[in-house]
Nucleic acid binder design. Sequence first.
DNA 1: TGGTTTCGCTACGAGTCGTAGCGTAATGGC
DNA 2: GCCATTACGCTACGACTCGTAGCGAAACCA
Lengths: 211, 211
Amino acid sequence: MLGMQSSTPAPRATGRPRSAAADAAILAATREALVELGWSKLTLSDVATRAGVAKTTLYRRWAGKNELVVDAVAELFDELELPDCGTLGADIEGVVHQFAAILARPEAKSGLMAVVAESTRDEALRERIRASIVDRQKRLVLEGRARAQARGELPPETDESEASRTVDLIFDVVAGAVVHRCLVSAEPADAAWVHRFTTVLVAGLAAASAD
Amino acid sequence: MLGMQSSTPAPRATGRPRSAAADAAILAATREALVELGWSKLTLSDVATRAGVAKTTLYRRWAGKNELVVDAVAELFDELELPDCGTLGADIEGVVHQFAAILARPEAKSGLMAVVAESTRDEALRERIRASIVDRQKRLVLEGRARAQARGELPPETDESEASRTVDLIFDVVAGAVVHRCLVSAEPADAAWVHRFTTVLVAGLAAASAD
DNA sequence: TGGTTTCGCTACGAGTCGTAGCGTAATGGC
DNA sequence: GCCATTACGCTACGACTCGTAGCGAAACCA
């Protein structure tokens, strides 16, 4: 369940417990508001009304708009999974497809980019994004590599830090390219584009690892 | 000089002309405010004060915060140029270095991502970004390809639309990866990373174009 | 039942937004 | 040199959002 709620104030054994249903309703309402209003016109008052809770309840659980949207968007990426298509290239292509599908949704577009922009001046927020979204999905790269190694498509890594840098590079290239395609170029990451991109990436990795 | 100012209301031959010095002061003040305050806390009142102009002057020239920041950020990318390093790989590496250097500046980070986020719900703004920044820098890819063809590193393109799609792909991969590295991963795109990335990209393009 | 925490509601001061109105400054046409 | 036209600086304004405080009621545990 994500990286837990905002502050995680050491769940006390006494007193009235926080409503878990309210959490779900609030995050869903946040995504709904992102679709209808976008980031800039989204207000916490509006989210509270949509979720059927009081505005004060929101401020008790989240520090502000930024943290709330991070949690709301993070849930979107939890449905990502690595398909087993037989080859490394096909596996990557499958994940890129899923990733592109999520980024095609308006709540992901406006929400994700906005919090990333805010995170450039907020260290804590950047850490929250990393923990809730980035590192959480890096598992896909690790799993894909392990599978490719088991198939014999990739050699087992010798240098640990070297392998770690490769994972980071792959993640930056894949996530960055898809995001740029969907948001900046504003053109669909359709099957043809995904195939083309995946071909270049896999070929490049193979050639570079041969050094 | 960029894509001209906001509306370009058909420069009339009569009446008091708009101060060009004010334009420069306003855009510089906008970047300064982006550094000190970031996107969310930047107000047009503050920019006006910094630039030494009245708030109303800002609203007469730009529709709002979004358009102003696009123009202010676009100027940052105009200093990009393609170095002639002898090989395609080295040329690309040089441009990626410059791009990473610009994205390391705080006014570029917070400003660029914020307007991209806003553009997901504003077609006119997205078009403004494309005209002022994206398409404007795509010349680098075109120039690099032409140079590589002159050197014999790349074959002359046969299919026009095919070549166009390749340019778009390269741009998405390069810009996307660097942005993701600098903003989301929040780690420096240093020489080692740039070299590594460029190697994978060039190798991938070479292998893919061999099909 | 008593202690503790959450929840819904209301109200509030502080701050920002974008615009209107007015007098003044700077240009070109005659 | 005068006039029409446009830009500029300044002030003031209503509308809106923000985040918080204070209260009584509800839900849980011992």
